[in-house]
Amino acid sequence: MSLIQRHSAGEGSPANGTTHEVETTVKSNTPVNGEYRLLTLDAPQSVLDCKPGQFFHILCPVTMAEQPYLRRPMSIYGYSAEKGELQFLYKVTGEGTRALATLTKGDKLNVLGPLGVGFTIQDDWQNLLLLARGVGLATLAPLAQEAQRLNRKLVAICSARNEDVLMSIDHFKALGAEVITVTDAQGTSDLENLREIIENQIADHGVDVMYTCGSNRMLKLLQEIGAKHDIPGEIALEQQMACGLGMCQCCVRSFNRNGTITQERVCREGPVFGIEEAMAW
């Protein structure tokens, strides 16, 4: 996968307008289950030209109890230029997300984006497969929207600890995806079962590309299957970030490019990378 150069040297232009720091208004911020919340923002058109896999850098509010300092990178869960809407699905885990959870309808929220290089869907990829677990669903959900728009077939394999925290099943189904669920509780989420499910998909319908997010286990599994069947894949990765724009060099990860280990910025060259070059961590 080649790096996408987002500006050429020497243009000397005024702000070129691909990324904006904007004030949005909270439409709703509701619990999805015991762990996750869905935040829906009223956002200006300038930030709604998004691609699946891109992210926003969110300036979480400072409250009496929580004082987050840096912005928090968060994958886009949904975007709609028609509705003027931006959505984030997040797990409340730390200071930033606890502060985010306090937002209610009408509150303002400063966001910076859209940022990074998203997933690609090449013209000749008809049968798409995604493998998602936990909050990885949030990152992969916009792929379903894009697959529907491009009239591609999508199989979404959704994994979770138990049925209660299996999210977005209806969302994927509504967008025309075929959904296969596996859970730890049912004993169906182990790697060998996943391998069998994917192998069956390849044998029965063919798979042109595989997408995943975040998990080491799933990365290795898809790398193996991809190498065996010569199927390309993409993975969205995470790393601690400061600026989110590529300036600070905080969010690097190692990649294997034809035998050479290189370091790339997750915020700028990613967060989506070729699955064959991603390295387990």
Partner: peptide
Amino acid sequence: RGGNPTPRVCEVRGSMLNSIGIP
């Protein structure tokens, strides 16, 4: 230069620490 190992950044109350290592 490659720079330092990650994590290269963390926040402390109202400020941040970094150790980028001049890649």
